[in-house]
């Protein structure tokens, strides 16, 4: 019973890691850099979601149109993903493109700076007060013989899996996906074959950011207290998931995201919760000692793999 309950807890918690880790992985595969501002793009996505949801709720309340709660949520996710993808593209254009020829360390530092700018920018814009994420659908708790599941939990896991699956299909089946895979082989040579590097880089950032926005909104649904620094810790942990999955691996990032969720939840179940992160990340370290390139990683390769 406890096991089953924690399995469900872990599925929800892992969904966030998976969605965020995907963004790290994709960008790494194309540009060989880790976008350390990604956790903060997740935060921006959550706030944009907050703005869109509040606006839609206000419009519905004024009687502009009558939308049921679940439709508002769907629209919020779609709009916010769209808007946040532009944030990702702007970050790429301003922060990373001028540094493309610079050493990787410079780009990593830029990422940290952009992260700080996004956090403090938000702080300046909205103030330090916590924001309460609007509840668009009522929480319904199902009691299945002592195991409790809410409609929100189910929705979060399903939407995350759908998005990860959609990304998988996009990379496998579309021309852009093919271009991304090609770029992952060698981002210096492939552009010489006529694949536009700038377009591809922007697109990768847009996709990653859109997924982060979706994660942000789902996060808001599950934990309805937003603050400007909410993306830092979860961003770091999702980065760990991206490494664990094997840099550049879409499937790997998704699986590792869920795995990380499972490890955290189950460690807290078995050991004293005070030691949760200590034990959880020691396990991750141990896995990386035996598989230094992660589950789906290959030595000295950053290919985008499915």
């Amino acid at each position: 019973m406890v096991l089953l309950q924690n399995l469900i807890n872990a599925l929800q918690w892992g969904s966030f890691y998976a969605l965020i880790a995907l963004g790290y992985s994709m960008v790494y595969s194309i540009l060989m850099l880790f976008n350390f501002a990604h956790g903060d793009i997740f935060m921006v996505g959550a706030y944009i979601g907050f703005g869109v949801a509040s606006a839609l709720i206000a419009l519905t309340a004024m009687g502009a149109f009558a939308l049921p709660g679940w439709l508002i949520l769907v629209l919020t996710i779609l709009f916010s993903m769209f808007l946040t993808s532009f944030v990702g593209m702007i970050v790429e254009r301003i922060g990373y493109r001028p540094l493309r020829a610079a050493p990787r360390a410079s780009a990593a530092i830029t990422g940290l700076m952009i992260g700080i700018i996004l956090e403090t920018g938000n702080l300046a814009l909205l103030g330090a007060q916590r924001v309460s994420f609007p509840s668009m659908i009522d929480t319904v708790t199902y009691d299945m013989g002592g195991v409790f599941v809410t409609n929100k939990k189910i929705m979060i896991v399903v939407v995350s899996l759908l998005l990860a699956g959609a990304l998988h299909q996009f990379i496998r089946r579309t021309r852009y996906g093919m271009a991304m895979r090609a770029m992952a082989f060698d981002y210096v040579v492939v552009p010489l074959m006529g694949v536009p590097l700038n377009t591809m880089a922007a697109m990768t950032f847009a996709l990653g950011s859109a997924l982060a926005a979706a994660a942000g909104i789902l996060f808001g649904v599950a934990y309805p207290v937003l603050d400007p620094y909410m993306g830092i810790l979860i961003g770091w942990k999702a980065f760990v998931a991206a490494i664990l999955g094997g840099r550049g691996s879409v499937m790997g990032a998704t699986l590792a995201g869920f795995l990380l969720g499972f490890i955290e939840i189950f460690v807290a179940m078995i050991f004293p919760s005070t030691l949760r992160d200590l034990i959880a990340y020691s396990i991750v370290l141990l896995i990386l000692v035996f598989r230094p390139h992660g589950f789906f990683g290959e030595a000295y390769s950053a290919r985008l793999r499915l």
């Binding site: 406890v2 309950q5 924690n6 807890n9 929800q12 918690w13 996060f219 599950a222 934990y223 207290v225 620094y229 909410m230 830092i232 810790l233 955290e264 939840i265 189950f266 807290a268 179940m269 919760s273 949760r276």
Partner: peptide, 11 residues
């Protein structure tokens, strides 16, 4: 900064 307490609460 933790936001998920599901494991502790299940316990």
């Amino acid at each position: 900064k933790d936001t998920d307490f599901s494991s502790q609460l299940t316990k």
